[in-house]
Amino acid sequence: MVKVEGLHKYFGPLEVIKGVDLEIREGEVIVVFGKSGSGKSTMLRCINFLEEPTDGTIQIGDMKLSGGHRNRRKREQIRQLRIQAGMVFQDFNLFPNMTALENVMEGPVTVKKIPRDQAERTGRETLQKVGLAEKAEQHPARLSGGQKQRVAIARALAMEPKVMLFDEPTSALDPELIGEVLQVMKDLAQSGMTMIVVTHEMGFAREVADRMVFFNDGVILEQGPPADLIGNPQFEQTRKFLSAVLEGTN
């Protein structure tokens, strides 16, 4: 479903990703974790070309793309790729000039050219799914952080993507608001959505992830089912990081 091959990313002279290969099957839920600066978020952003891959290819479904000069044709291909991948940001990035419903309808109406009344119907259904049907007419400024993030998830879902990318979706939230967002993500995983989640929520990972991927210094150091990776990490770095994270949460 999603395939990252030979990915390298430089920011100027700094190599942030040093050769990453990752394949995700349909319906698989992957949790990516690792120290900040290890390249996990950058990889996620490379998958929908918010960052230009310096080298390597990204495949979603049967669309395969690599980095390079963005001419008109390339821009259109990137756009098509992005439509396949729903993205959820750490800072929500809702459009403050639109209501929750308008945020959710924006992609279908403007990008997919779906008629307004139809988009509104599905938009309300999607908001219902994240438990915010009654907030449809509110502007983001009137929503709590958890509600904002749920609207952001609905906005991404409304495009009917093949894969959902979550970039530390609960890091900017107050502790008491994290649960509602994770619950929506769990429901989504149970519905069979393919998901790549960058997070340090180990409880969520243990419960929902099919596979965990540990990033260290720009490469995938270790991966496997949560039980194995959390229970019996093979590398010292993984062990250290896990104990630090688990200490923080317990």
């Binding site: 756009r79 992005r82 993205m87 992609g107 990008v111």
Partner: peptide
Amino acid sequence: PGQTEAAEAIGMT
């Protein structure tokens, strides 16, 4: 930049 990225992520030109 967050607004631009969010708009790009849903495939806007």
